[in-house]
């Protein structure tokens, strides 16, 4: 692997390899010395043009625990705020001799562009409303752990994942659909008609506008954040109405399939798309998702940077 730009770049073998290694890496978190020397001498730059806490800090920890040197460049306080273009910023950072660029940008396609400009490995840490492949990987990791707890030999093809909420503005959903498709799970997308992205019919997933109809068949319900900052309004009449139609309320929590899990990529709008009861229930994987973030990103960094510069896999 040279870059990780889209969840669609990953074959089933690669996904399985990343999740398996992440399982090993999660052990490092409980060791006295949380450090592996695999990326010693490598330099990773987190280039974040958009606010992020969990993604940036987990990429930073992942790099550091693999002994890479990690620096963070955020748009605030950098030359970006002086008007430097994406291309110049990327080239400037790359010219310092970095091995990998982890890019978060508000414009869809920015990491793909950057990958064409530089020799370094490029990781997409979220681009606009397009993709967020490492989030999809850590979601799959949390789900796999959840399924394995009750059945170590479970088959993804028997599983249904419902992704509910603001599909139009979510980069998580596209990566998740692509990745879950690779794994073989059935994906049902649920949203009010106004929040269904255009062209959603061509995605490898079923589409519904009725959450209650889907609820009983889902092994995982993934609630997406209502992204008020990306909305200019008019997608739904009121927050209250959204919650009634598409929120994971206490009432809906009780109607989940037995053994079903709840995911949320965070940050949560409690009371809007997810009730406090659901967020804090035993079925919730939200904190597992956060804890898995570092291990999954360690695995991804190792797969990209662990070998020679060709980025192949032995």
């Amino acid at each position: 692997m040279k870059h990780l730009l889209s969840a669609a770049d990953l074959s089933l073998d690669e996904v399985t390899g990343i999740l398996d290694l992440a399982e090993e890496m999660s052990q490092v978190q409980s060791r006295p010395v949380k450090k592996l020397p695999a990326l010693r001498g490598r330099t990773v730059v987190n280039l974040f043009f958009e606010d992020s806490t969990r993604t940036r800090s987990s990429f930073e920890l992942a790099g550091k625990w693999l002994s890479a040197d990690v620096i963070n460049v955020s748009a605030k306080g950098s030359s970006v705020s002086k008007g430097e273009s994406l291309r110049d910023t990327v080239l400037t950072v790359a010219a310092m001799g970095v091995d990998a660029l982890v890019i978060r940008h508000m414009a869809s396609g920015a990491p793909q562009q950057a990958a064409q400009w530089v020799d370094a490995h490029v990781l997409n840490a979220g681009d606009g409303t397009h993709e967020h492949p490492t989030q999809a990987l850590l979601d799959a990791f949390s789900m796999r752990r959840h399924f394995r707890a009750s059945d170590p030999d479970f088959d993804w093809r028997d599983k249904t994942v419902a992704v509910v909420g603001d599909l139009t503005h979510s980069r998580v959903v596209r990566s998740n659909v692509l990745l879950l498709r690779t794994l073989g799970a059935r994906v049902v997308l649920v949203a009010p008609p106004t929040l269904l992205p255009s062209g959603v019919q061509s995605w490898p997933a079923e589409v519904s506008t009725d959450l209650d109809e889907v609820l009983g068949s889902a092994d995982v319900v993934m609630m997406l954040r209502v992204q008020r900052e990306r909305m200019s309004g008019g997608y739904f009449p009121t927050a209250r109405e959204y919650t009634v139609g598409y929120g994971l309320t206490r009432d809906r929590l009780a109607r989940l399939k037995p053994g079903a899990a709840i995911c949320h990529p965070g940050p949560m709008n409690r009371g809007l798309e997810i009730s406090a009861d659901a967020a804090d229930s035993a079925a919730s994987l939200v904190l597992d998702q956060v804890a898995s973030g570092v291990a999954v990103r360690m695995s991804v960094l190792y797969h990209l940077l662990g070998g020679d510069d060709e980025g192949g896999t032995r």
Binding site: M1, L36, P37, A38, L66, Y302, G307, G311, T313, R314
Partner: peptide, 17 residues
């Protein structure tokens, strides 16, 4: 991950500890 020749070949699969 502790090998000294990681850089000279394609990414090695990591085993379990």
């Amino acid at each position: 991950m502790y090998r000294d020749d990681l850089r000279s070949q394609p990414t090695r699969p990591v085993g379990r500890t």
